[in-house]
Computed example of a mutant assay.
Amino acid sequence: MGIVGSVLLLATEAAEAESPGGFGLNFNILETNIINLAILIGVLFYFGRKVISNTLSERRSNIETAIREAEERAKEAAAQLSDAQQKLTQAQAEAQQIRKAAEENARSVREAILARAAEEVERMKETAARDLDTERERAFAELRQRVVAMALQKAESELRSGIGDDAQQRLIDSSIALLGGNT
Rank of each mutant, 00 (worst) to 15 (best):
E18D: 15
L56Y: 04
R170N: 03
G48T: 00
T89N: 05
R170K: 09
E31T: 08
Q80L: 12
P20H: 14
F47C: 06
R68M: 06
A129E: 15
S19G: 15
I3A: 13
F45V: 02
I163S: 01
L40D: 09
N26I: 07
E31R: 11
G180A: 04
T32L: 02
E16W: 12
N105R: 15
S157M: 08
R59N: 03
A118C: 07
T12Y: 13
D173Q: 08
N182F: 06
A118E: 12
N28H: 12
G22N: 02
K154P: 03
A38W: 10
R123P: 05
L81D: 10
Q92R: 06
E120L: 05
E94R: 09
L132C: 03
I52W: 05
E76K: 00
N62E: 14
R136F: 00
A84T: 04
T65V: 02
S53K: 14
Q86R: 09
I52T: 08
S108H: 05
E122A: 10
I163Q: 04
L44T: 06
I163E: 00
A129M: 06
Q80M: 11
M1S: 10
T55H: 12
S82E: 15
L88W: 04
F23L: 15
A14G: 10
V4R: 13
Q97S: 13
E103W: 02
